[in-house]
Nucleic acid binder design. Structure first.
Lengths: 212, 212
DNA sequence: AGGCCTAACGGACCGCAGTCCGTTTGGTTG
DNA sequence: CAACCAAACGGACTGCGGTCCGTTAGGCCT
């Protein structure tokens, strides 16, 4: 189980990510101290041994805190990794929402979109091991035979439709749309229907294949 | 660890997925029998209790086989789930490669692309729990605050660029392109560079935002 | 049929994520 | 300052994924 619904003991500042007005239910002093200790210990251990070798016991020990406390604070391993990433992420959010152009407001949105992708890619590249660790089984998924077959199929169709460009990457973008995770999310938590998704797929195909 | 490189004891028929000419290294009789038993047991258990409650011990016990054998055959839990999915997947592959239109050859590739997405979505919908189980942490990823912020940002930019359509889904398609898993895969296993990915991002942005 | 060699087997074992519950303590109230 | 209580703590405990290595038995060769 990952964090419970919402009235959980988690998250007050556990996943701040945009808490401008802090109407905080306030955190007890020892709790706050331990959160800081744990985040510091986790960051330290990640830098030393890589995110993939981070264990909850090790973080607890390094922070001189009981294991239960780690789980109380962050819910699970994923929550801890997210919390570690959160700091960087917040700076990025500031930059693209309120910072200077081309990332921030003040120029053509298409320019900002382009800049956004570049910045996100570079940030990802710099912390890849932590991001990957919070997105496990990735390589298995991407090397799975069925996925390769589908990707190749789409690529071939794009080519024979006369589409120009980096077809492998375009095929990847289309295929990502059909992944279990996003589809399930949209169906169950965003109230979408399969028909809507199919319509969106056709729209995306049209945009990518239409010669302008 | 998931399955080793290639000359592993896995995969001969473990992930057949398109082994037309079976130059099989051939599998010993007991091995083949156990594979069949295990797949049957796994399917049975999944149907009874859902894929999320499937444990390797339970599969081993139900198949009257040692636990080590399960891991020898399928590498890890993910491998077992893939193997269970493989059967359905193969039928789908046959359909879109060699079957009748609109999925199979014989019509305009754009039509086939459209049909492909629809079919994939429906297949996914039917076996969602197994697919999700082989793609864990999905919901955590999709509910994470940073992702929501990015998605919303992109959506807003698309809107102010005057793009028409289902902006939430278009934003999702763009965002999927920046996920850790595919980016890492492309950088490390497909020999792409960050610059290439950035160029591809710009191309995709252009296709999606250009009014035709 | 007998013997050999290697692939396959099986289950004890290990490490880690996550839970449970008895104990401690910050903070608040009278 | 004392008493009280909810929040926080901590570490023993559980369950499961994955490994290891001594044992078993297919299949081939003579």
């Amino acid at each position: 189980m990952t964090p419970p619904s919402e009235p959980s003991p988690l998250s007050p500042p556990a996943r701040p990510a945009l808490r401008l007005v802090d109407q905080a239910p306030s955190e007890r002093a020892d709790a706050a101290r331990n959160r800081a200790r744990l985040l510091e210990a986790a960051a330290e251990l990640i830098q030393q041994q890589g995110a993939e070798h981070l264990t909850m016991d090790a973080v607890a020990a390094a922070a001189c805190v009981g294991k239960g406390t780690v789980f109380r604070r962050f819910g699970d391993r994923l929550g801890l990794l997210f919390a570690v990433l959160d700091q960087t992420e917040q700076e990025f959010q500031q930059a693209f929402m309120f910072g200077p152009p081309p990332l921030g407001p003040g120029v053509d949105p298409v320019v900002r979109l382009e800049a956004f992708g570049g910045a996100a890619l570079r940030q990802l590249h710099a912390n890849m091991d932590v991001y990957l660790e919070s997105d496990q089984q990735a390589s298995a998924r991407y090397n799975a035979a069925p996925r390769r077959v589908r990707a190749r199929h789409i690529e071939v169709l794009l080519r024979s439709a006369g589409v120009q460009g980096d077809l492998e990457l375009l095929a990847g973008a289309l295929l990502a749309t059909l992944d279990p995770a996003p589809v399930h999310h949209l169906l169950t938590e965003r109230g979408r229907t399969v028909d809507e998704l199919e319509a969106a797929w056709r729209d995306l195909v049209a945009r990518i294949t239409h010669r302008c």
